[in-house]
Design a protein around this nucleic acid. Structure first.
Lengths: 244, 244
DNA sequence: CGAGAAATTAACCCGTTGGATAAATACTGT
DNA sequence: ACAGTATTTATCCAACGGGTTAATTTCTCG
């Protein structure tokens, strides 16, 4: 909940002396604060006052710029989907070997979830609500993930090239890849307690990514050479995870 | 939220005319109502008054028999873990061929989640709270899942027999199997909207179970004969899913 | 049977919270 | 410079919700 961005700090400083108008900035700060709040506490647990405070705004501003709590929540949810869809589109799998393409896909999914834990939390919150907000959102419903078609193309290519032994339903594979990453990260708190070790430590995360990649590739290619062992598959990993 | 059990109906009927004592029964009704409430609305969204009403009790009874809202929640959570651990222990994988044992494990996990959707919701709620209640619960921490050791034994056996090609970390495999099932079911609401079809329909569920089983077994055995196709792997499936 | 303990009920308390109102302040175009 | 509008602030409030108090009823056992 602490302020990170220099821009926001300045905005705050200025507004202390004598407030000034900044509708777009305010809207952004509100949505960002709302995202953090809903992700941290769910829809019911979120507090409108806390959102306002963390956005350096007055509560009235939320209603002026966005709407009531549920409007706010839906806007955050839509924004979250927009963001992941946008990043998904930047992924170019066509010029990669089918196995590398799948590895890249897994790597992206894993790191996206890792970089955007609020996204996971928001999805859980929305599922608790039985997706009732999503159902109302024509915006989200129109944002098809490019992944399904990407996967279909890669799998087809892989089967033709002989890299893959059998065709897979792209939707199932998509859900499987997401699930392998999602469950581990979204439930890392409880799983860490159950297993008595921190699943978010760097070595644990690396191990998980290696395992997921090995599992899926072994299933598709039939080639499990050492992948389940200590091999980290470093050759297949993208640059994305060098960050940490 | 409707009353299902005949016993509870009778209890209600009796208590309408002139109430009678039933501490154990009341406690059970309270915990059952609390489980449904917490599963349906999360910790923050749960309403103590609703729990009382659905338990055919007075709000005061919750505090008398269990404690405050958080005590209630923790008791429900502990009960949920106790229940799954108990069922897990009934699973005997030792006398099965390694591939069949894995299939059985997947089948059990899948059907347990399907039969106990509240468990999934409770886990999500607890993870939203960063497992802070679990951490305090010595009870749950002492309930180790028998699955990890079961998987270790099966994998070892499978490698020795030549059924499996490589060893896998049992914890990773456990998390993977759980994740493949958990994500699909826990997020079925949003995924159904995104993909425009009901993922909980019988045929979709069967397809998912077949896919998960094929994916894991293909990875372990290297034998993907038709498993990713339309084959339903009926031979490998237990009796558990005949229910629906 | 009757008195004390256990279980249950009914009524109330009070801080919190989402949301609303109205007044004040900054900006814009003319 | 000023009228009108957009934006922000300062209060307020009614409903809700968790928790408590005290009285009432049923059970148990000497």
């Amino acid at each position: 909940m602490h302020r990170h961005h220099r821009a926001i700090d300045l905005a705050k400083a200025k507004r202390i002396l004598k407030w000034q108008r900044d509708p777009e900035g305010m809207r952004l700060r509100i949505l960002e604060a709302a995202k953090q709040e809903f992700a941290a506490h769910g829809l019911a647990g979120a507090r409108v006052d806390r959102i306002a405070a963390n956005a350096d705004a007055n509560k009235r501003m939320l209603y002026y710029h966005v709407g009531n709590k549920e409007d706010l929540y839906l806007e955050v949810l839509e924004g979250a989907y927009e963001k992941i869809r946008a990043e998904e589109r930047t992924l170019d799998l066509e010029h990669l070997d089918p196995p590398e393409a799948i590895a890249r896909l897994i790597d992206f999914t894993w790191n996206y979830f890792l970089r955007n834990p609020e996204f996971l939390a928001l999805l859980n919150t929305e599922n608790l609500a039985k997706a009732k907000h999503l159902k109302r959102s024509t915006k989200v419903k129109s944002m098809h993930s490019p992944f399904v078609e990407m996967i279909r193309a890669v799998v087809t290519r892989g089967v033709e090239s002989g890299d893959f032994r059998a065709a897979v339903d792209p939707v199932q594979l998509y859900i499987s890849i997401a699930g392998l990453a999602f469950f581990y990260l979204s439930n890392s708190a409880t799983l860490s307690v159950i297993f008595g070790r921190d699943l978010l430590r760097k070595d644990a995360r690396d191990e998980r990514l290696a395992h997921m990649t090995a599992l899926v590739l072994a299933a598709l290619t039939g080639n499990s050479t050492d992948v389940f062992g200590k091999g980290r598959m470093s050759a297949l990993l993208s640059a994305e995870q060098q960050a940490n």
